[in-house]
Design a protein around this nucleic acid. Sequence first.
DNA 1: CATGAATGAGACTTCATTCAT
DNA 2: GATGAATGAAGTCTCATTCAT
Lengths: 187, 187, 187, 187
Amino acid sequence: MEPSRPLRADAVRNRTKILDAAREQITRLGPDVPMDTIAEAAGVAVGTLYRHFPTKTDLVTAVIGEHSELITQAIEAAAERVAGGADAMSEISALMSHIVEAAASDRAVKAAAQDVGAEFLTPEQESRSRAATTAMIEAAQRDGRLREDVTADDFYLLILTAPTAVEPAVRARWLQLFLAGFTTSRN
Amino acid sequence: MEPSRPLRADAVRNRTKILDAAREQITRLGPDVPMDTIAEAAGVAVGTLYRHFPTKTDLVTAVIGEHSELITQAIEAAAERVAGGADAMSEISALMSHIVEAAASDRAVKAAAQDVGAEFLTPEQESRSRAATTAMIEAAQRDGRLREDVTADDFYLLILTAPTAVEPAVRARWLQLFLAGFTTSRN
Amino acid sequence: MEPSRPLRADAVRNRTKILDAAREQITRLGPDVPMDTIAEAAGVAVGTLYRHFPTKTDLVTAVIGEHSELITQAIEAAAERVAGGADAMSEISALMSHIVEAAASDRAVKAAAQDVGAEFLTPEQESRSRAATTAMIEAAQRDGRLREDVTADDFYLLILTAPTAVEPAVRARWLQLFLAGFTTSRN
Amino acid sequence: MEPSRPLRADAVRNRTKILDAAREQITRLGPDVPMDTIAEAAGVAVGTLYRHFPTKTDLVTAVIGEHSELITQAIEAAAERVAGGADAMSEISALMSHIVEAAASDRAVKAAAQDVGAEFLTPEQESRSRAATTAMIEAAQRDGRLREDVTADDFYLLILTAPTAVEPAVRARWLQLFLAGFTTSRN
DNA sequence: CATGAATGAGACTTCATTCAT
DNA sequence: GATGAATGAAGTCTCATTCAT
C-alpha cells in the first residue's frame, strides 16, 4: 500500500504545485495547454514535471483523480448523514446539486478526460461511491420518495450528463427536471 | 443567396466527398484529425480541401451544419405529423430518441463544435426548430401529457446533455428517466 | 520579326489587362503576390494568365520589359532633342531625374526583377540606350560640362543605385550629389 | 538589462552557430531560405532555432543587428582616429569603401531587412554613428576637403544606395563618382 | 534531483502550376 | 481558347518528450 518510498518533502511540495497549476491551467485554457505552460505556472521546469508525471496523460489522469476523489468523499459523507438519520431525498438532491456544480467548473478537466481516454472514477472509487449511493437510494425508496426501479447507475448517468457550459440557473432547471423523473410524486 | 455560379460538377462531387470523409474521420478519431488525413480519406489533395474550406474551423462548422440541418428537419417533420393529427407525446418521444441516437454517433462532431466555438444551430435553424418544438409541446400539454411548465428550452437541454459515449440501452434508459420528469403521469 | 501569328483581338486585350494588373499588384503588394491575385485583378482566370505567361518569371520579366522600354524610349527622345540642339547637360539632368522617379514608383517591380534574376534591359534595349546615352555624354563633354572620363556605364550605375524607398526630396538630394560628381564645375 | 540568467554554455554555442548559419544562408540564398535549411546548416533541429528566435523575423533582425553593430563600430573607430589626428578625408574614403564592400557581401541581408521591415540601425546605433560621422564630416570640412553642405544624412544615402550585385571594380568606380560629388576640389 | 535546452514529427496553410470541363 | 478546380511540395511554427548540464 506504500508502493514507492515516501517522497522527499520538497518532492511532495512540487507534486502539489504541479497538480494545482495543472488543474488551473487546464480548467482555464482547455485540455490543450502545453506542458511547458503548466510547468511555468507551477514554478518548476518541464523536466521536473515529467519526473512526477511521465506523460501528459498521467498528469491529466491525476488531476481528474483528485476531482473524483472529492466527489467520492462527498457521496460518502452524504450517505453517512443519511445513515445518521438525515432525510435521504434531501441529501440526494443537495448532493447532486453539489456534484453538478463542481463538474461544471471543471468542464475542461472533463474534456481533457475524454481526450485522454481516462476513466472518471478508479475501480476503487467506483465501488466506494456505488456502495454509498446505493445506501441512500434504498433509504429514499423506503421513504417512498424515489421510484423503485432507480439504481446507482441512474445517478451516474445524471452526473455524467450534467450540462457544463451553461448558466447556473439553467443547470438548476436541468437538475430539477431530471430529478423529477426519479421521484414518486411531484408536489 | 446564389451569387456565385453553381459549382462545377466535379467540384460538387469533391465537396461531398470531403464532407463525408470529414464527418467520418472526425467522428471516428475526434476533432483533432489532421487535415491531411481528412483529405486522404476523401481521396483529394489537401489543396482541394482548402479550396472548399479555407480553414479547419470552416470544415468543422460545415460538418456540424449538416447535422444540425438534419435534426431541424426531423423536428419539423414531427411537428407536421402532430399538426396532421398524430399523437403529440408519442411523436416527441420518438423524436427525442432519434435525436439522441444521432447525436451519439456524432459525439466527436459535438466535441469539435465546442473546440471550434461554433454554435450548434444557426440562428435560422434555431428559430425553425423552436417554432416546431413549441407547437408540439403545446399539443402535448393540451393532451394533458406534458407538465405545464415545460418549454422548448427544456428540450434543448435534453438534447444538449444526451449521453454519447455509452451503450444504446443506457441511452434509452437515460431518455426514459429524463422524459419521465417532463410528463404528467407515469402509467 | 513577327514570330508567331498576330494575336486575336481579345487575346491582345487579355494580355494588356494582365500586364496592367500585374504591374499594379506587384507594385502595390510586392513581388510575392500570388498569381491568383493577379489573375483576379486582371479579370481573367489563372489558366488564361498561364496561357499568356507560362511562368511567373515570364510575367515579371514582361512587366519589367515594359518599364525598360519606356525608359529606353525616354533616353532616345532626350538624345534626339540634344541632336536637335538642346542643351546636353540639362537634358541629362532632367532625364536622370525622370528615370529615378520612375524607378522609385516601380520599386517592387525592381525587387521582383532581382527575385527572378531577370535582366533589366534586353540586349536590344541595351544597345539602343547605350548609343543614345553615349551621344548625349559626348555632347555634354564637348560643352565642357561633364568630366572627360564619364561613360554610359557610369550612368547605368546611377540608374541602378537610385534609392527607391525614400521621399522624393531625399531622392532629389541624392541625384544632386551624384551628378555633382559627374560635372566639371559646380556653379 | 540582465534579467534572465546567462545562457547555458551549450545554448550560447548554439545561438552562435545559428547566427552564423543564418548569415551565411541568407547571404547566399536570399531572404527566403527556409528555416529548416538554416537549422540544418547550423547543425541543430528547427525546434532549437525557434527556441532562440521565435520568429523568422526575429532571426533576420538579429542577423542584421550584428551587421549594423559592426558598421557602427567601424564608424566610431574611424572617428576616433580622426580625433587622434588622422586625415579626415582619407579616413572617410577608406571607411566608405569598407562599408560598401561589407554591404555588398551582405546584400541578401539587406534585402531580408527590407522584407522584414526591420530598421537597419537601432536608435542607439543610429545616434552613435551619427555622432561619429558628424565629427568626421566637420573635420574634413575644416580641412576644406568636403563641401560645406554635406551632412551625415548624405553619407547614409551613400551607404543605402551602394550597389551590391556588381563586381568590386564597379563598386569602386561608383564610390569614386559618388565621393567626387562630396568633395571641394577635384585634382 | 532540478533545470531548461534540444529534438523532430507533424499541424495548418499557401501557392505555382497542371488539367478536366 | 477560357475557366477555375485540383495538385502537392514546401513553408512556418508548435509541442510532447528526451537528455546534457
